[in-house]
């Protein structure tokens, strides 16, 4: 490919120089040819003008932009991190016994057995006698024919209502 038209660089060769892909032949021509060098410099001057103007515009525009939503993860919030960690640990401390209780209940229900209670000492004879007495009293109270105060109230109300309903 020839890089020159007549005594000067072709447009393509000149553009290659401008984009930084000029051949050694083009570069040596530029070094010797003032006219071609002037064309490159004219383009460079226009680009520099655009570069400076656009950068000045951009600086002003960027200065007016909203604050960056700075990631706060690692910045000046160690207390917040500690707080969240403490809250998490507290929740775990509360949740663990509940979880254990639920699982124990589920296990016993599945096995059909009462929860195992680890007895430390056997009940004394006196304790057994007292328990039996209590159970007898409860049994007597449940089976007695004595009217309960609630029953009295209800019966009284019903009788009164019946009395009101009957004509004199």
């Amino acid at each position: 490919m020839t890089n020159t038209i007549g005594h000067h660089l072709s447009t393509e060769a000149l553009d290659d120089v401008l984009i930084g892909m000029g051949t050694a032949e083009s570069e040596s021509h530029l070094a010797a040819c003032a006219q071609c060098r002037a064309r490159v410099q004219a383009f460079g001057a226009n680009l520099q003008l655009l570069d400076e103007t656009s950068m000045a515009w951009s600086r002003v525009r960027a200065a007016g932009m909203a604050e960056m939503p700075v990631p706060t993860r690692a910045r000046r919030r160690p207390l917040a991190t500690m707080g969240w960690t403490a809250a998490g640990l507290a929740a775990l401390a509360l949740a663990l016994p509940v979880w254990q209780g639920v699982h124990q209940h589920i296990d016993h229900a599945r096995l059909g057995a009462a929860p195992q209670v680890t007895a430390t000492e056997p009940d004394s004879a006196a304790q057994i006698a007292a328990d039996n007495k209590l159970l007898e009293e409860i049994d007597a109270a449940v089976n007695s024919n004595e009217a309960s105060p609630f029953g009295v109230i209800l019966r009284t109300d019903r009788q009164a209502a019946r009395h009101r309903a009957q004509p004199q």
């Binding site: 950068m55 515009w57 951009s58 600086r59 525009r61 960027a62 932009m65 960056m68 939503p69």
Partner: peptide, 28 residues
Amino acid sequence: YRARILRFVTYSTGDPDLAETITQDTLL
């Protein structure tokens, strides 16, 4: 770098408002 990126994206998209959003996203 914000101004530099803003300019590049503005020319790339042709839309300075969109360029602001993209610039913020880029830096983040």
